[in-house]
Structure formats: C-alpha cells, structure tokens
Amino acid sequence: MTSGAPPANVNSAGLTRDVYKGLPSTLCAGCGHNSITNHLIKALYEYGVEPHKLAKMSGIGCSSKTPAYFVERAHGFNGVHGRMPSLATGAKIANRELMVLGISGDGDTASIGLGQYCHMIRRNVDCTYIIEDNGCYGLTKGQFSATADRGSVLKKGQVNELETIDVCGLAIELGATFVARSFSGDGKQLIPLLQAAFSHRGTAVLDIISPCVTFNDHEGSTKSYAYVKEHHAILHTPDYIVGGREITVDYEPGTVTEVQFDDGSRILLRKLEVEYDPANRIGALTVLNQAREKGELVTGLLYVDTQARDLCEREKLPKKPLAQLAEDDLRISRDDWKSLMESFS
C-alpha cells in the first residue's frame, strides 16, 4: 500500500521533491546516514512539510552534519556537542508552530549529551529526535561510543567490555511517549515510522542503526551491515495513513494494530510472527531486554502514548507563539505598575 503519495509531482504543500533536497553530503560513500537522509527527504516530501515551518536541529558529529543535506531552505541549527535537546526545547517553546526535527548520533546522545537527552524526554518536548546510531565516533576516527554492544570489536581489535546504553529502553524508562527503532537500510519500515514521529505530539525518539562503513562495518562489529542483516528481528510492518485519507487495502481481522495521532493520521502495524502491543511499556522493555540477551536487533514502533501532554500544553502556552508577542501583550499596565511600586514601601 502507498501511504498518501500525491498523484502529481507536487505534494500537499504544493512543492516538488527537489525542494526537500539539500547540499551534497560530505560523509563517506555508503554511510548509513546518507540513506537516512534520503529516507528523510522522501518522508518529509510525502508528509508535505512546509519548509519555513521546519526547524532542523543537531549537535556535533557525522550525524549532526546531515541537516545540511535535506530541505536546504529550512532553518537549521548545528549547535554544540550533546546539547541539541536544550536548543530544540527553547526553539519549540518560543515558536510552537515550528516542526522541530532533531538529528543526533550515538556519541552526541548517549555519551556527552545523555543528560539533556533524558530531560528532553521527561519534558516531552514536541519534536522528532533521530539518533543515527553506528556505535562509534566517526569524525574522530572510530573510538567506541556508549551504544556499542558489549563484546563488539573495533577495527584494530579492541573489545568493548562496557555494557551498552540502550537509548530506546532508557527512553521508555524515562516516560518517553514515542519510541521506535529502525535500520538505515530499511526505508520501507523507516519512512512510515518517521512520518508517524512527525505526527506524534511529544518527543518521538527514533533510534536508527546506521552502519559506519569506514570504522565499524567489519567482522566482530554488532553495528555492521552484515550483522544487522543476520540479526534483524522485525516486530511489525508499519503503514502511515495521512489524516482523513481512507485505508485502501484490506487487512485480515486481528492482524493490524492501529495508532491514531492528534492530527488525525494513523499508523497501522501489521503483525508478523509475534503479537506486539506498542501501548504496553513493560512489554516493550521486556522485548528490548530479550533482544539484548539474544544479540538481536529488534525494530519497529516499540512504544507509543498519544494521550500524554507535551511541554507547550503543560506550560499552558497561548496558541500564538511567544516569539510573536509584543509590548502590549507582555508589559505590566501603567496602573498595575503604580500600585506594584507602592507595594514596595
């Protein structure tokens, strides 16, 4: 089934796919991140994002360079290492009309930025947060990152003896409202998950395993193309349905779990071998732990809660963005000022 691809060569925003492209990538040929960029271009185009409403945020690292490679005319912000969540939080509360899309890496998220990652999730900032996860530091030439699996081997033979940080398990633990894991090479799964993440109101975490062809794609690595191919355990096949659009494919009863988002769009999760309920937090954590034991890469929409309040809602922000309020909205009136000053004596 195609999920709402427009008929002509323009999308619902009236724009061609070229508008969603960016500068040429300066990453290595074959890098998983480049595939993710291409999937993002497709997802954003199909979703019909208006470029002026898109805020592309990132930290530092190979992954964080990629916002330059898509939707060139949108505003982008390549901040400092591990601190993108705070910038994204500030941007969203200043202008709640922005669609905030954060791109981070495993070093940026799980090491230097772990604190900000955790607290962004706790605040449920309305944004899509993508981790382009290759288990190593690319730009500094191949050191382990904190998402490297225990026992994974570096190119020069060093073995990682430290336990991995599972950014998805951690996110669920912290009360994340949308957590998915996918693979850079699986556009069919990734694109609907991305679009569902865009529709989700709250922090949508997407951990995308994205092999580093230069430093972490060898025998002994658990983040290589070959390893992923052998150990990939897919939970379900997702389809994203734009709000208001009819479902045109018949599903067998009992084979599909449907999740509806605030904007009316839906994600349909077609069952594969096992039953999986993405509304079950404990179940999600169990599946992640079992996969870790077995050395499997489990992918799909792990957990979703569409009812939780996001940061702007909790802060009771007005519909009009704070950034657009003026003197009359914000200053104390002359009368109130006078009595306020009198109260100090």
């Binding site: 912000f77 901040g79 601190r83 705070s86 994204a88 939080t89 500030g90 941007a91 200043a94 704070l322």
Partner: peptide, 12 residues
C-alpha cells in the same frame, strides 16, 4: 543557556 539560545534563535 541552551534553552535560551534555542528560544532567541526562534525569535523570543
């Protein structure tokens, strides 16, 4: 301070 700069970048 990160939140401050995110917010001012977006115009607040």
């Amino acid at each position: 301070i990160g939140m401050v700069f995110g917010a001012t970048w977006a115009g607040a």
